[in-house]
């Protein structure tokens, strides 16, 4: 009996120290989350307006002089995958990778530009060719890094290294729900929606100044940088929210475990006392 009491006591202690860690992580994630969410919320309108503007342009654009706008038959895909730096964030990373797998099904010629340590690790393990590993730490990527990444992508795209650029990140829906999302970055003709189709009707004409090629060559790197920056912000907020939820669940779970274990401990203690009394009584009687 005494042996099992000790074992239970040790177990309670170990669960307690784990709970301390999960509790601390939950609090840290919660306090960081507030700031990250503010940043993500602030940059969301830019992303939405930029995307809707470019979709409008893609829908009504008939001027295919810029390499960034016209559709290609180049079947090489570059995926920019934004994941976290660290684990213990519930399904944040694995959901994104699962989604990626589904998204890339049937495409053989893909390259990945990973952002975030987990993303680098995952694709390295899978032997997927990586475009660059320079941006491994998502927490350290700032605006000027985004411009550099955008420039890299633009150069590779215009030299014909890739035919399509795709972005995978985790969208922040609410504190409790984050959904992996993919969106097309280049060429802009990939942004085309069918509702804007003009069958034989007069097509809208947009005036580009000085000309569409110059405009797109100047705007596309900015657009990519902007979208990267905002999606990194949103992904980071998602990661923290996922971590907070996961750690909250872990803490609750640990509390429950401690409760059951202390019940077991007390039961064992009571049993050993009862047994002792029985032994003493039996000894006195004889």
């Amino acid at each position: 009996m005494a042996g099992s009491m000790k074992a239970v006591k040790l177990r309670i202690k170990s669960v307690q120290s784990t709970m301390q860690i999960t509790k601390a992580m939950q609090l840290v994630a919660a306090s960081k989350l507030r700031k990250a969410k503010e940043r993500a919320d602030a940059s969301k309108p830019y992303l939405e307006t930029m995307l809707s503007t470019l979709t409008d342009i893609a829908n009504s654009n008939n001027d295919f002089q810029s390499p960034f706008t016209k559709a290609t038959d180049n079947d090489k895909w570059l995926y920019v995958v934004i994941a976290g730096d660290r684990g213990l964030a519930g399904g944040y990373n694995s959901n994104l990778f699962k989604f990626m797998e589904h998204e890339t099904k049937g495409r053989s010629d893909i390259t990945v530009l990973p952002i975030g340590k987990k993303s680098v690790e995952y694709f390295k393990h899978r032997h997927v060719p990586l475009f660059t590993e320079e941006y491994a730490e998502v927490a350290k990527v700032n605006v000027s890094d985004c411009f550099q990444i955008a420039k890299l992508i633009c150069d590779a795209y215009s030299s014909g290294k890739f035919g399509h650029i795709f972005l995978c990140y985790t969208n922040f829906i609410s504190m409790l729900s984050q959904v992996p999302t993919a969106s097309s970055l280049l060429p802009l003709s990939d942004l085309k929606t069918n509702e804007g189709k003009t069958d034989g009707k007069a097509r809208e004409l947009i005036l580009y100044e000085p000309d569409s090629e110059t405009v797109f060559n100047a705007v596309v790197p900015e657009y990519l940088a902007g979208i990267l920056y905002t999606s990194i912000n949103i992904s980071y907020a998602s990661e923290l929210a996922a971590r907070r939820t996961a750690m909250e669940a872990a803490t609750d779970n640990a509390e429950e475990m401690i409760e059951t274990l202390s019940l077991n401990y007390n039961r064992a203690r009571q049993a050993s006392i009862t047994q002792e009394i029985t032994e003493i009584v039996a000894g006195a009687e004889s």
Binding site: S60, E204, L207, Y208, E209, S212, T214, A218, V219
Partner: peptide
């Protein structure tokens, strides 16, 4: 100004 034609520039 108001009622500008469709236009796009950097």
């Amino acid at each position: 100004l108001a009622r500008h034609t469709d236009y796009c520039t950097a």
